[in-house]
Write a protein that binds this DNA or RNA. Structure first.
Lengths: 144, 144
DNA sequence: CGGTCTCTTTTGAATTGATCAAATCAAATG
DNA sequence: CATTTGATTTGATCAATTCAAAAGAGACCG
């Protein structure tokens, strides 16, 4: 996958516009960002961009398979450019930070449920919940 | 776990009130329900109950470990009474219906990520996405 | 190179899901 | 039965997101 915004857009038949390029660039810097964080980042370089445009762009990117939208419980939707490889996420229960977790191929069978209740399963989404290094160190420092 | 509302509440040191009993009873009938669905059901038997009370009760139940809150992407929060066993869920991408999926114990290791990025993992949450029987049959009927 | 068409962005409002806060009310204890 | 503490109601507020119409700008064509 190419990370050049213009190439990505062109390859998907999307018009190359300043807001779209800026949103993609923001996602390169912030790999798991919510719409308002992206809006803030985009506003730095493109102050006339509306929040609405950011929502539009993110929706378009997701629709065209250029971005993936994840919605961890208790968090606004997050977007990432890493698509097409069924990877998962670790979310910090303290600060909400998200990191990628590769799908261990050898273990794929584990993600097939035993009893499917008649559902035709298309994919399994795994979210790991834990505490990130920074938050763990911070809480240790507080306790002692 | 006892499914008698009064016993559940008493065992958790919560006051036994009509709204609480009604919400628990609604959850027994609708094992994966959103706040407004529960509100509708509760309203049938206890019309003077406010939506706010339903939110309060659900929050209390969750806080005291009597209910579990799940938030599938694209869905409002759902509540279930089945707690304490780390089970997962299948969600229908068409109608949103949710069913339980037992955590296959023998496969537990699969849910340990290879690279944790320094996170102290506390739990893994798995959501299966697929199409339920009814929706699959409905779409087949439409196509032909 | 400029016109045209279509898509994109802006602007502004509306919606949904959920939470906050104060006043009223009711369950449990003695 | 009175008291106290906790629950519910009422009404406002918020955050995240979407909808819709008008204005604007890419991209292709002649």
């Amino acid at each position: 996958m190419d990370l050049d915004a213009r190439t990505m857009l062109a390859d998907s038949g999307l018009r190359i516009t300043a807001p779209r390029v800026a949103v993609i660039d923001a996602l390169v810097e912030m790999p798991h960002a919510a719409a308002d964080a992206i809006f803030a980042k985009v506003s730095e370089t493109l102050p006339r961009t509306s929040l609405q445009a950011v929502y539009n762009v993110l929706g378009d990117l997701a629709t065209h398979g250029l971005a993936r939208r994840i919605e961890p419980a208790g968090s606004p939707a997050l977007y990432e450019l890493r698509v097409g490889d069924n990877h998962h996420h670790v979310v910090c229960t303290h600060c909400g930070k998200v990191a990628d977790v590769d799908c261990s191929v050898g273990h794929a069978p584990c993600l097939t449920p035993s009893e499917t209740h008649g559902f035709a399963i298309a994919e399994a989404e795994v979210t790991y919940w834990g505490v990130c290094t920074e938050c763990r160190e911070a809480s240790v420092a507080t306790v002692h």
